[in-house]
């Protein structure tokens, strides 16, 4: 069942995720476990199709012993949390000045054209989405983009082509490991 239709009772956090949440909570003093919220949300999002539905957020509140509203207000503030479904592979191009000087705008146009979508749209097969994000701290390696946890730098049209092919072939890793 797609996450979008899942009710609260269907939301299950895996055992490794629950263990990881316990570790993250242990990093903060008693009574301050809410501090783990931002990191926990990243891990939860990774396990739930890269977005945070209301029942998922409610579950996070329950696990951390805080109110649902405390989770909602954080999720709506930070740009890395998705409140609706996203493409499987989201190409997040840095659209800030230094990347612009090195031609990122042309690359964004190229990628959208190649995939047949506009900015922020998801391809019909649900595989790809192109977004513009703010400076990712890779300005000297411009133009660049983020895909999952990883950066792809010194991009060119050829590199974008290869990346798209690799994604289709399931050869692109999205998550970094400890």
């Amino acid at each position: 069942m797609a996450l979008a239709e899942a009710g609260p009772e269907q939301i299950v956090f895996s055992e490794p995720l629950m263990k990881r949440i316990e570790v993250l909570k242990s990093h903060f003093p008693d009574g301050k476990k809410k501090s783990a919220l931002l990191t926990v949300l990243h891990e939860v999002q990774d396990e739930h199709e890269d977005w945070l539905s209301v029942p998922v957020m409610d579950k996070v509140a329950e696990v951390l012993g805080i109110l649902p509203i405390e989770v909602y207000e954080v999720v709506t503030f930070y740009s890395m949390y998705n409140q609706k479904p996203v493409g499987k592979y989201v190409f997040e191009f840095c659209r800030t000045s230094c990347c612009v000087t090195r031609g990122v705008e042309d690359l964004m146009d190229y990628t959208c054209q190649k995939l047949g979508v506009g900015m922020n749209e998801i391809t019909a097969d649900g595989m790809f989405q192109v977004k513009g994000v703010e400076c990712l701290g890779a300005c000297g390696y411009a133009p660049m983009m983020q895909l999952g946890d990883f950066y792809h730098e010194f991009l060119s049209k050829e590199k974008v082509d290869t990346l798209i092919d690799d994604c289709r072939a399931g050869k692109v890793e999205k998550l970094s490991k400890v």
Binding site: H27, F28, L38, T39, L41, V74, F77, Y78, M80
Partner: peptide, 11 residues
Amino acid sequence: DLYVTCGAGAY
């Protein structure tokens, strides 16, 4: 005790 914790995209 030293820990690393993270943000989520907010300058």
